[in-house]
Computed example of a mutant assay.
Amino acid sequence: MDPNSVPSVDRVPHGGHAAETVEFSANVNPEVPPGVEDVYRDAFGAVGEYPPEPPTDYVAAAAEYVDVDPAHVIPTAGGLAALRLAIETTVETGDTALVPAPSFGEYAREVRLQGATAVPVPESEILDADPDDHALAVVCNPNNPTGRAYDRGDLLAFVRRSRAAGTPVIVDEAFLGFTDRETLAGTDGAIVARSLTKLFGLPGLRAGFAVATGKLGERLRRARRPWNLGTPARLVGAYCMQQTDFVGATRDRVERERERMADVLNERYEVFPSAAPFLLLEVTGESVDAVVERCERRGLTIRDARTFATLENHVRVAIRRPAENRRLEEALLDV
């Protein structure tokens, strides 16, 4: 990190801070796997000792979860920690990095903290960008906040071109677990970042991991801080990644509700096609403020998507339980 750049880099706004309303501003599963509370409680008995280093049980669970060699897994305290580790080990002061827009604002922020320049590329065109002369390229799949999922063949072709140019590619798969699409974990030239926050409904746990091969993986392993994954996160995370029935049920519910909600809301909004557990809506005929405030009056918090670069008249809404989703539809349609 470049100390001289820190004072000029602002924080990035996020959703997920509602206390007394139904939370649609954060893309987090409202359900958690059965048995999580018991595992978390049992973990307390081991917090008086340092966690094992490296956390081989967690690494083994993550490797099985994405079907890679455990040697390629780097455990981290959440997906964002994986992103920071990847950017810290690939970007230097004065470099440039390709980042999608609109997309997760932390990509550009982390690049700027390194004293480098984030070069925005429309998220619909990121796989057509020229990676030459850039220190890094970032892809979010599915993209946040648009929900776009990229064709696997196109992703692999972009990674190959980038690898030939000497440019590592971060593939942020924070929401890929909500789909049955195949991960890029284990692909040479790619650093895959995974989060357990979203799919397993545990944002306060702070558990995730990166996957990288070859010299990229070695750099991440060497730079990773020891004991960077606390005992509750290690044990609960490993347990969650083995809950295949929960994952399958979540995928089915999210897909079914997302498609139904898109059909209903299309009466009043332009609804972006999505493969993620959220929908991006373009607001017409009224202000974004009016939509956000109407939802708030009904006890629902949605994301004002104007905080994302290039979006001017948009809101983003998560996919929750069916009854909650019906309440949101009524508020958005003002019925």
Rank of each mutant, 00 (worst) to 15 (best):
M1Q: 02
P3G: 01
V12Y: 14
G15V: 14
H17R: 11
H17D: 12
A18N: 13
E20H: 15
V32Q: 15
P33F: 01
P34S: 13
Y40D: 06
R41W: 10
D42R: 10
D42F: 01
A43S: 15
A46L: 13
V47N: 02
Y50N: 04
E53G: 02
E53Y: 05
Y58R: 06
D67E: 08
V68T: 09
V73N: 01
G79Y: 04
L85W: 02
V91I: 12
E92D: 15
E92G: 12
T96K: 00
A101D: 12
G105I: 12
E106Q: 07
A108E: 06
A108H: 02
A108I: 05
Q114G: 05
Q114C: 06
A116G: 01
A116Q: 00
P122D: 15
E123I: 14
D130I: 13
D133F: 02
C140P: 10
R148M: 11
A149G: 07
A149N: 13
Y150D: 09
D154I: 00
L156G: 03
F158V: 05
R160Q: 11
R163M: 04
A165P: 07
G166Q: 15
T167W: 05
P168Q: 06
E173T: 14
F175D: 00
D180I: 03
V192T: 15
V192I: 11
S195C: 08
L196W: 05
K198I: 04
L199M: 12
L199C: 07
G201W: 03
L202M: 08
G204L: 11
L205G: 07
G208P: 10
F209H: 00
A210T: 13
V211D: 14
A212L: 07
G214M: 12
W227G: 10
G230T: 13
V236M: 04
Q242F: 09
D245H: 12
R253I: 07
E267R: 14
Y269L: 04
F272R: 15
P277F: 08
P277M: 12
F278I: 09
F278N: 13
E282Q: 10
S287N: 14
V288I: 10
A290P: 02
G299H: 02
R303L: 15
D304Q: 07
T307R: 14
F308D: 04
A309N: 06
L311M: 08
H314G: 03
A318M: 06
R320Q: 08
R320S: 09
N325Y: 03
R327T: 00
E329H: 13
L332D: 01
L333Y: 09
